[in-house]
Design a protein around this nucleic acid. Structure first.
Lengths: 215, 215
DNA sequence: GTCTATAGCAGGATAGAC
DNA sequence: GTCTATCCTGCTATAGAC
Protein backbone atom coordinates (compact mmCIF):
# COMPACT_ATOMS: atom_id res chain seq x y z
CA UNK A 1 0.00 0.00 0.00
CA UNK A 2 2.38 2.63 1.17
CA UNK A 3 5.11 1.83 -1.30
CA UNK A 4 2.89 2.37 -4.31
CA UNK A 5 1.57 5.63 -3.01
CA UNK A 6 4.98 6.85 -2.08
CA UNK A 7 6.19 6.30 -5.60
CA UNK A 8 3.35 8.17 -7.25
CA UNK A 9 4.57 11.52 -8.43
CA UNK A 10 2.61 14.24 -6.69
CA UNK A 11 2.19 16.18 -9.90
CA UNK A 12 -1.31 17.52 -10.32
CA UNK A 13 -2.77 18.50 -13.64
CA UNK A 14 -1.24 21.77 -14.70
CA UNK A 15 -4.61 23.40 -15.19
CA UNK A 16 -7.98 23.36 -13.50
CA UNK A 17 -9.00 22.41 -10.00
CA UNK A 18 -7.29 19.92 -7.72
CA UNK A 19 -8.69 16.43 -8.03
CA UNK A 20 -8.07 13.41 -5.85
CA UNK A 21 -4.84 11.97 -7.13
CA UNK A 22 -5.99 8.51 -7.99
CA UNK A 23 -4.82 7.73 -11.46
CA UNK A 24 -5.78 4.49 -13.09
CA UNK A 25 -2.14 3.54 -13.06
CA UNK A 26 -2.02 3.71 -9.27
CA UNK A 27 -5.13 1.63 -8.82
CA UNK A 28 -3.82 -1.04 -11.15
CA UNK A 29 -0.44 -1.04 -9.48
CA UNK A 30 -2.18 -1.75 -6.22
CA UNK A 31 -4.20 -4.52 -7.78
CA UNK A 32 -1.04 -6.10 -9.11
CA UNK A 33 0.45 -5.95 -5.65
CA UNK A 34 -2.57 -7.52 -3.97
CA UNK A 35 -2.93 -10.30 -6.49
CA UNK A 36 0.78 -11.08 -6.42
CA UNK A 37 0.88 -11.13 -2.67
CA UNK A 38 -1.87 -13.69 -2.66
CA UNK A 39 -0.14 -15.91 -5.21
CA UNK A 40 3.22 -15.73 -3.49
CA UNK A 41 1.61 -16.67 -0.24
CA UNK A 42 -0.31 -19.61 -1.64
CA UNK A 43 2.23 -21.03 -4.07
CA UNK A 44 5.53 -19.50 -3.10
CA UNK A 45 7.73 -16.98 -4.84
CA UNK A 46 9.54 -19.29 -7.22
CA UNK A 47 6.50 -21.34 -8.15
CA UNK A 48 4.68 -18.19 -9.21
CA UNK A 49 5.56 -17.03 -12.70
CA UNK A 50 5.07 -13.56 -14.11
CA UNK A 51 2.62 -15.18 -16.50
CA UNK A 52 0.63 -16.51 -13.54
CA UNK A 53 0.51 -13.07 -12.02
CA UNK A 54 -0.47 -11.42 -15.27
CA UNK A 55 -3.25 -13.94 -15.85
CA UNK A 56 -4.61 -13.42 -12.34
CA UNK A 57 -4.57 -9.66 -12.79
CA UNK A 58 -6.09 -9.96 -16.23
CA UNK A 59 -3.29 -8.79 -18.47
CA UNK A 60 -0.35 -10.19 -20.41
CA UNK A 61 3.00 -10.78 -18.77
CA UNK A 62 4.78 -8.04 -20.68
CA UNK A 63 2.43 -5.43 -19.30
CA UNK A 64 3.48 -6.12 -15.73
CA UNK A 65 6.81 -4.52 -16.41
CA UNK A 66 5.10 -1.20 -16.89
CA UNK A 67 4.45 -1.27 -13.14
CA UNK A 68 7.40 -3.12 -11.71
CA UNK A 69 10.90 -3.51 -13.08
CA UNK A 70 11.23 -7.13 -12.10
CA UNK A 71 9.73 -9.99 -10.18
CA UNK A 72 12.17 -9.25 -7.42
CA UNK A 73 10.97 -5.65 -7.20
CA UNK A 74 7.47 -7.01 -6.77
CA UNK A 75 8.61 -9.19 -3.89
CA UNK A 76 10.45 -6.35 -2.20
CA UNK A 77 7.41 -4.10 -2.46
CA UNK A 78 5.16 -6.75 -0.96
CA UNK A 79 7.49 -7.56 1.89
CA UNK A 80 7.89 -3.89 2.66
CA UNK A 81 4.20 -3.27 2.67
CA UNK A 82 3.09 -6.22 4.70
CA UNK A 83 5.62 -6.12 7.49
CA UNK A 84 5.50 -2.37 7.85
CA UNK A 85 1.74 -2.28 7.96
CA UNK A 86 1.60 -5.22 10.32
CA UNK A 87 4.01 -3.75 12.83
CA UNK A 88 2.40 -0.34 12.61
CA UNK A 89 -0.98 -1.78 13.50
CA UNK A 90 0.44 -3.68 16.43
CA UNK A 91 2.17 -0.64 17.81
CA UNK A 92 -0.85 1.53 17.40
CA UNK A 93 -3.09 -1.01 19.08
CA UNK A 94 -0.80 -1.17 22.07
CA UNK A 95 -0.20 2.56 22.23
CA UNK A 96 -3.90 3.27 22.23
CA UNK A 97 -4.41 1.35 25.44
CA UNK A 98 -4.85 3.37 28.64
CA UNK A 99 -1.56 4.62 30.03
CA UNK A 100 -1.76 2.42 33.12
CA UNK A 101 -2.35 -0.80 31.22
CA UNK A 102 -0.58 -3.93 32.34
CA UNK A 103 1.78 -5.86 30.11
CA UNK A 104 -0.75 -8.63 30.21
CA UNK A 105 -3.29 -6.33 28.61
CA UNK A 106 -0.80 -5.15 26.04
CA UNK A 107 0.14 -8.67 25.09
CA UNK A 108 -3.49 -9.60 24.85
CA UNK A 109 -4.16 -6.74 22.49
CA UNK A 110 -1.09 -7.49 20.41
CA UNK A 111 -1.94 -11.16 20.02
CA UNK A 112 -5.48 -10.36 18.98
CA UNK A 113 -4.31 -7.85 16.40
CA UNK A 114 -1.53 -10.02 15.03
CA UNK A 115 -3.62 -13.13 14.63
CA UNK A 116 -6.27 -11.10 12.90
CA UNK A 117 -3.85 -9.61 10.39
CA UNK A 118 -2.22 -12.93 9.65
CA UNK A 119 -5.48 -14.80 9.30
CA UNK A 120 -7.08 -12.19 7.12
CA UNK A 121 -4.21 -11.36 4.82
CA UNK A 122 -2.01 -14.41 5.05
CA UNK A 123 0.77 -12.03 5.84
CA UNK A 124 4.06 -13.54 7.05
CA UNK A 125 3.81 -16.68 5.03
CA UNK A 126 5.69 -14.88 2.29
CA UNK A 127 8.37 -13.70 4.62
CA UNK A 128 10.23 -16.89 5.36
CA UNK A 129 14.00 -16.85 5.39
CA UNK A 130 13.91 -18.83 2.18
CA UNK A 131 11.80 -16.27 0.38
CA UNK A 132 13.82 -13.39 1.74
CA UNK A 133 16.93 -14.89 0.24
CA UNK A 134 15.68 -14.13 -3.25
CA UNK A 135 16.29 -10.47 -2.61
CA UNK A 136 19.61 -8.91 -3.41
CA UNK A 137 21.30 -6.14 -1.54
CA UNK A 138 20.35 -3.62 -0.37
CA UNK A 139 16.78 -4.94 -0.26
CA UNK A 140 17.80 -8.10 1.53
CA UNK A 141 19.40 -6.37 4.49
CA UNK A 142 16.55 -3.93 4.66
CA UNK A 143 14.07 -6.77 4.95
CA UNK A 144 16.12 -8.48 7.60
CA UNK A 145 15.97 -5.28 9.60
CA UNK A 146 12.22 -5.11 9.22
CA UNK A 147 11.89 -8.68 10.45
CA UNK A 148 14.08 -7.93 13.41
CA UNK A 149 11.97 -4.93 14.27
CA UNK A 150 8.94 -7.17 14.33
CA UNK A 151 10.64 -9.70 16.58
CA UNK A 152 11.91 -6.89 18.77
CA UNK A 153 8.39 -5.68 19.34
CA UNK A 154 7.58 -8.91 21.15
CA UNK A 155 10.89 -8.95 22.95
CA UNK A 156 10.28 -5.46 24.23
CA UNK A 157 6.93 -6.45 25.65
CA UNK A 158 8.52 -9.41 27.39
CA UNK A 159 11.23 -7.27 28.88
CA UNK A 160 8.67 -4.78 30.05
CA UNK A 161 6.80 -7.60 31.72
CA UNK A 162 9.92 -8.60 33.56
CA UNK A 163 10.32 -5.08 34.89
CA UNK A 164 6.73 -4.91 36.08
CA UNK A 165 7.09 -8.34 37.64
CA UNK A 166 4.40 -9.88 35.47
CA UNK A 167 6.82 -12.13 33.60
CA UNK A 168 9.34 -14.36 35.29
CA UNK A 169 12.82 -12.95 35.20
CA UNK A 170 14.65 -16.10 34.14
CA UNK A 171 12.75 -16.37 30.87
CA UNK A 172 15.17 -16.04 27.93
CA UNK A 173 13.33 -13.41 25.93
CA UNK A 174 15.18 -14.10 22.67
CA UNK A 175 13.89 -17.66 22.62
CA UNK A 176 10.46 -16.85 23.99
CA UNK A 177 9.88 -14.21 21.33
CA UNK A 178 10.84 -16.71 18.64
CA UNK A 179 8.32 -19.17 20.01
CA UNK A 180 5.66 -16.50 19.73
CA UNK A 181 6.63 -15.39 16.25
CA UNK A 182 6.83 -19.01 15.11
CA UNK A 183 3.38 -19.84 16.38
CA UNK A 184 1.99 -16.68 14.77
CA UNK A 185 3.71 -17.26 11.44
CA UNK A 186 2.31 -20.75 11.25
CA UNK A 187 -1.24 -19.45 11.62
CA UNK A 188 -1.16 -18.41 7.98
CA UNK A 189 -0.70 -22.04 7.05
CA UNK A 190 -3.52 -23.70 8.93
CA UNK A 191 -6.14 -21.07 9.69
CA UNK A 192 -9.52 -21.70 8.12
CA UNK A 193 -12.21 -19.18 8.82
CA UNK A 194 -14.94 -21.80 8.87
CA UNK A 195 -13.35 -23.68 11.74
CA UNK A 196 -12.52 -20.88 14.13
CA UNK A 197 -12.59 -17.10 14.26
CA UNK A 198 -9.50 -14.93 14.50
CA UNK A 199 -10.74 -13.71 17.85
CA UNK A 200 -10.87 -17.22 19.23
CA UNK A 201 -7.39 -17.98 18.02
CA UNK A 202 -6.10 -14.66 19.25
CA UNK A 203 -7.60 -15.23 22.67
CA UNK A 204 -6.12 -18.69 22.93
CA UNK A 205 -2.65 -17.57 21.87
CA UNK A 206 -2.86 -14.76 24.31
CA UNK A 207 -3.79 -16.93 27.27
CA UNK A 208 -1.38 -19.66 26.25
CA UNK A 209 1.69 -17.49 26.10
CA UNK A 210 0.78 -15.09 28.88
CA UNK A 211 0.20 -17.90 31.34
CA UNK A 212 3.26 -19.66 30.06
CA UNK A 213 5.48 -16.67 30.71
CA UNK A 214 3.92 -15.55 33.95
CA UNK A 215 6.04 -14.98 37.02
CA UNK B 1 17.20 -43.23 6.00
CA UNK B 2 14.52 -45.83 6.16
CA UNK B 3 13.29 -45.30 2.63
CA UNK B 4 16.66 -45.99 1.10
CA UNK B 5 17.18 -49.10 3.13
CA UNK B 6 13.72 -50.35 2.45
CA UNK B 7 14.29 -50.10 -1.26
CA UNK B 8 17.57 -51.97 -1.21
CA UNK B 9 17.06 -55.44 -2.52
CA UNK B 10 17.93 -57.95 0.19
CA UNK B 11 19.87 -60.10 -2.22
CA UNK B 12 23.12 -61.34 -0.74
CA UNK B 13 26.05 -62.50 -2.76
CA UNK B 14 25.21 -65.89 -4.20
CA UNK B 15 28.30 -67.53 -2.83
CA UNK B 16 30.39 -67.27 0.30
CA UNK B 17 29.56 -66.05 3.75
CA UNK B 18 27.00 -63.43 4.63
CA UNK B 19 28.41 -59.94 4.64
CA UNK B 20 26.85 -56.72 5.85
CA UNK B 21 24.70 -55.54 2.96
CA UNK B 22 26.20 -52.15 2.36
CA UNK B 23 26.75 -51.72 -1.31
CA UNK B 24 28.41 -48.59 -2.58
CA UNK B 25 25.19 -47.74 -4.33
CA UNK B 26 23.30 -47.64 -1.06
CA UNK B 27 25.86 -45.50 0.66
CA UNK B 28 25.83 -43.02 -2.20
CA UNK B 29 22.07 -42.98 -2.33
CA UNK B 30 22.06 -42.03 1.31
CA UNK B 31 24.62 -39.31 0.71
CA UNK B 32 22.48 -37.89 -2.06
CA UNK B 33 19.52 -37.85 0.29
CA UNK B 34 21.41 -36.12 3.08
CA UNK B 35 22.95 -33.49 0.86
CA UNK B 36 19.67 -32.79 -0.90
CA UNK B 37 17.80 -32.50 2.35
CA UNK B 38 20.26 -29.89 3.48
CA UNK B 39 19.97 -27.89 0.27
CA UNK B 40 16.18 -28.02 0.23
CA UNK B 41 16.08 -26.83 3.78
CA UNK B 42 18.48 -23.96 3.27
CA UNK B 43 17.42 -22.75 -0.15
CA UNK B 44 14.04 -24.26 -0.77
CA UNK B 45 12.90 -26.94 -3.14
CA UNK B 46 12.45 -24.81 -6.23
CA UNK B 47 15.59 -22.79 -5.77
CA UNK B 48 17.66 -25.95 -5.64
CA UNK B 49 18.51 -27.34 -9.07
CA UNK B 50 19.53 -30.89 -9.83
CA UNK B 51 22.84 -29.40 -10.93
CA UNK B 52 23.22 -27.83 -7.49
CA UNK B 53 22.57 -31.14 -5.82
CA UNK B 54 24.96 -32.98 -8.10
CA UNK B 55 27.70 -30.45 -7.46
CA UNK B 56 27.22 -30.71 -3.70
CA UNK B 57 27.36 -34.49 -3.84
CA UNK B 58 30.34 -34.39 -6.15
CA UNK B 59 28.94 -35.76 -9.36
CA UNK B 60 27.28 -34.55 -12.55
CA UNK B 61 23.57 -33.94 -12.77
CA UNK B 62 22.89 -36.84 -15.12
CA UNK B 63 24.25 -39.30 -12.57
CA UNK B 64 21.64 -38.39 -10.01
CA UNK B 65 19.01 -40.10 -12.09
CA UNK B 66 20.70 -43.40 -11.47
CA UNK B 67 19.49 -43.09 -7.88
CA UNK B 68 16.23 -41.19 -8.14
CA UNK B 69 13.83 -40.95 -11.03
CA UNK B 70 13.10 -37.29 -10.58
CA UNK B 71 13.55 -34.29 -8.36
CA UNK B 72 10.09 -34.90 -7.04
CA UNK B 73 10.99 -38.46 -6.03
CA UNK B 74 13.89 -37.00 -4.10
CA UNK B 75 11.55 -34.67 -2.25
CA UNK B 76 9.09 -37.42 -1.44
CA UNK B 77 11.86 -39.63 -0.09
CA UNK B 78 13.16 -36.85 2.12
CA UNK B 79 9.77 -35.91 3.47
CA UNK B 80 9.00 -39.54 4.21
CA UNK B 81 12.26 -40.07 5.98
CA UNK B 82 12.30 -36.98 8.12
CA UNK B 83 8.73 -36.97 9.37
CA UNK B 84 8.62 -40.69 9.97
CA UNK B 85 11.87 -40.71 11.85
CA UNK B 86 10.92 -37.62 13.81
CA UNK B 87 7.60 -38.98 14.96
CA UNK B 88 9.07 -42.39 15.76
CA UNK B 89 11.65 -40.81 18.03
CA UNK B 90 9.03 -38.75 19.82
CA UNK B 91 6.81 -41.74 20.42
CA UNK B 92 9.64 -43.88 21.62
CA UNK B 93 10.87 -41.19 23.99
CA UNK B 94 7.43 -40.87 25.54
CA UNK B 95 6.74 -44.60 25.62
CA UNK B 96 9.99 -45.25 27.42
CA UNK B 97 8.97 -43.12 30.35
CA UNK B 98 7.83 -44.92 33.52
CA UNK B 99 4.26 -46.12 33.27
CA UNK B 100 3.02 -43.73 35.93
CA UNK B 101 4.48 -40.62 34.31
CA UNK B 102 2.43 -37.46 34.26
CA UNK B 103 1.43 -35.71 31.06
CA UNK B 104 3.67 -32.91 32.15
CA UNK B 105 6.62 -35.26 32.12
CA UNK B 106 5.61 -36.65 28.75
CA UNK B 107 5.29 -33.20 27.23
CA UNK B 108 8.61 -32.23 28.68
CA UNK B 109 10.27 -35.24 27.11
CA UNK B 110 8.56 -34.67 23.77
CA UNK B 111 9.56 -31.01 23.60
CA UNK B 112 13.16 -31.83 24.41
CA UNK B 113 13.29 -34.52 21.75
CA UNK B 114 11.52 -32.49 19.10
CA UNK B 115 13.61 -29.37 19.54
CA UNK B 116 16.73 -31.47 19.40
CA UNK B 117 15.76 -33.17 16.15
CA UNK B 118 14.72 -29.93 14.49
CA UNK B 119 17.78 -28.02 15.61
CA UNK B 120 20.19 -30.74 14.63
CA UNK B 121 18.74 -31.77 11.31
CA UNK B 122 16.75 -28.75 10.25
CA UNK B 123 13.88 -31.11 9.81
CA UNK B 124 10.43 -29.59 9.20
CA UNK B 125 11.66 -26.57 7.33
CA UNK B 126 11.26 -28.53 4.15
CA UNK B 127 7.78 -29.62 5.00
CA UNK B 128 5.85 -26.42 4.58
CA UNK B 129 2.51 -26.52 2.82
CA UNK B 130 4.15 -24.74 -0.10
CA UNK B 131 6.81 -27.39 -0.50
CA UNK B 132 4.35 -30.21 -0.05
CA UNK B 133 2.33 -28.87 -2.94
CA UNK B 134 5.07 -29.84 -5.37
CA UNK B 135 4.20 -33.46 -4.85
CA UNK B 136 1.64 -35.12 -7.02
CA UNK B 137 -0.78 -37.81 -5.98
CA UNK B 138 -0.54 -40.20 -4.34
CA UNK B 139 2.57 -38.83 -2.66
CA UNK B 140 0.87 -35.58 -1.76
CA UNK B 141 -1.97 -37.15 0.20
CA UNK B 142 0.43 -39.51 1.86
CA UNK B 143 2.52 -36.62 3.09
CA UNK B 144 -0.53 -34.79 4.34
CA UNK B 145 -1.38 -37.85 6.38
CA UNK B 146 2.10 -37.97 7.81
CA UNK B 147 1.86 -34.34 8.83
CA UNK B 148 -1.49 -34.93 10.45
CA UNK B 149 -0.08 -37.84 12.40
CA UNK B 150 2.60 -35.54 13.74
CA UNK B 151 0.07 -32.91 14.73
CA UNK B 152 -2.13 -35.58 16.25
CA UNK B 153 0.68 -36.71 18.50
CA UNK B 154 0.60 -33.35 20.25
CA UNK B 155 -3.16 -33.24 20.27
CA UNK B 156 -3.30 -36.63 21.92
CA UNK B 157 -0.99 -35.47 24.68
CA UNK B 158 -3.16 -32.45 25.27
CA UNK B 159 -6.29 -34.53 25.44
CA UNK B 160 -4.62 -36.90 27.84
CA UNK B 161 -3.72 -33.93 29.99
CA UNK B 162 -7.34 -32.89 30.10
CA UNK B 163 -8.35 -36.32 31.29
CA UNK B 164 -5.76 -36.35 34.05
CA UNK B 165 -6.77 -32.83 35.02
CA UNK B 166 -3.35 -31.38 34.28
CA UNK B 167 -4.56 -29.29 31.36
CA UNK B 168 -7.55 -27.01 31.50
CA UNK B 169 -10.60 -28.47 29.86
CA UNK B 170 -11.65 -25.43 27.87
CA UNK B 171 -8.41 -25.34 25.88
CA UNK B 172 -9.19 -25.92 22.18
CA UNK B 173 -6.67 -28.62 21.44
CA UNK B 174 -6.74 -28.19 17.67
CA UNK B 175 -5.52 -24.62 18.00
CA UNK B 176 -3.15 -25.28 20.86
CA UNK B 177 -1.43 -28.08 18.98
CA UNK B 178 -0.98 -25.78 15.99
CA UNK B 179 0.65 -23.19 18.23
CA UNK B 180 3.09 -25.83 19.40
CA UNK B 181 3.86 -27.18 15.96
CA UNK B 182 4.28 -23.65 14.63
CA UNK B 183 6.73 -22.69 17.32
CA UNK B 184 8.65 -25.92 16.77
CA UNK B 185 8.72 -25.59 12.99
CA UNK B 186 10.10 -22.09 13.25
CA UNK B 187 13.03 -23.30 15.34
CA UNK B 188 14.66 -24.59 12.16
CA UNK B 189 14.76 -21.04 10.89
CA UNK B 190 16.39 -19.21 13.76
CA UNK B 191 18.28 -21.74 15.85
CA UNK B 192 22.02 -21.15 16.02
CA UNK B 193 24.03 -23.56 18.08
CA UNK B 194 26.45 -20.91 19.22
CA UNK B 195 23.72 -18.88 20.89
CA UNK B 196 21.82 -21.53 22.77
CA UNK B 197 21.76 -25.29 23.17
CA UNK B 198 18.91 -27.48 22.06
CA UNK B 199 18.39 -28.47 25.68
CA UNK B 200 17.91 -24.87 26.73
CA UNK B 201 15.42 -24.24 23.97
CA UNK B 202 13.64 -27.50 24.67
CA UNK B 203 13.37 -26.68 28.34
CA UNK B 204 11.99 -23.24 27.64
CA UNK B 205 9.42 -24.49 25.14
CA UNK B 206 8.41 -27.13 27.58
CA UNK B 207 7.87 -24.76 30.48
CA UNK B 208 6.27 -22.13 28.27
CA UNK B 209 3.60 -24.36 26.83
CA UNK B 210 3.05 -26.55 29.85
CA UNK B 211 2.45 -23.58 32.11
CA UNK B 212 0.37 -21.97 29.41
CA UNK B 213 -1.92 -24.94 29.14
CA UNK B 214 -2.08 -25.83 32.81
CA UNK B 215 -5.41 -26.21 34.55
C1' DG C 1 -1.29 1.32 -20.65
C1' DT C 2 -1.54 -2.99 -22.92
C1' DC C 3 -0.38 -5.94 -26.53
C1' DT C 4 2.60 -9.36 -29.50
C1' DA C 5 6.77 -11.39 -30.36
C1' DT C 6 10.95 -12.94 -29.11
C1' DA C 7 15.66 -12.93 -27.16
C1' DG C 8 18.33 -15.30 -23.91
C1' DC C 9 18.92 -18.39 -20.51
C1' DA C 10 18.38 -22.13 -17.02
C1' DG C 11 16.17 -26.09 -15.51
C1' DG C 12 14.61 -31.21 -15.62
C1' DA C 13 15.26 -35.14 -17.85
C1' DT C 14 17.16 -38.67 -21.32
C1' DA C 15 20.56 -41.40 -24.27
C1' DG C 16 24.42 -43.60 -24.83
C1' DA C 17 29.62 -43.84 -24.26
C1' DC C 18 32.87 -45.57 -21.02
C1' DG D 1 28.07 -45.99 -11.55
C1' DT D 2 29.43 -41.82 -13.66
C1' DC D 3 30.14 -38.92 -17.54
C1' DT D 4 29.10 -35.93 -21.75
C1' DA D 5 25.96 -34.09 -24.71
C1' DT D 6 21.65 -32.56 -25.71
C1' DC D 7 16.49 -32.05 -26.09
C1' DC D 8 12.73 -29.53 -24.67
C1' DT D 9 10.29 -26.66 -21.98
C1' DG D 10 9.27 -22.65 -19.36
C1' DC D 11 10.95 -18.68 -17.37
C1' DT D 12 12.31 -13.46 -16.95
C1' DA D 13 12.77 -9.59 -19.36
C1' DT D 14 12.92 -6.49 -23.51
C1' DA D 15 11.42 -4.07 -27.88
C1' DG D 16 8.36 -1.93 -30.33
C1' DA D 17 3.51 -1.69 -32.37
C1' DC D 18 -0.95 0.14 -31.21
Amino acid sequence: MTAAVAKAKPKAKSKGLEVPILKKSDATRQRVLDVTSDLFRRNGYQATSMRDIAAAVGMKSGSLYYYYDSKEALLAAILNDTIDAHLAILKEAVDNLPANSTVRQKLDKAFQASVKIISDSGDMAVASAQTLSFLQEPEYSEQVRHRQAYNQFWRDLIEEGKRTGEIRKDLPDAVASMAIVGALTFVAEWFESDRSTTDEVGALFSSLFIDGMRA
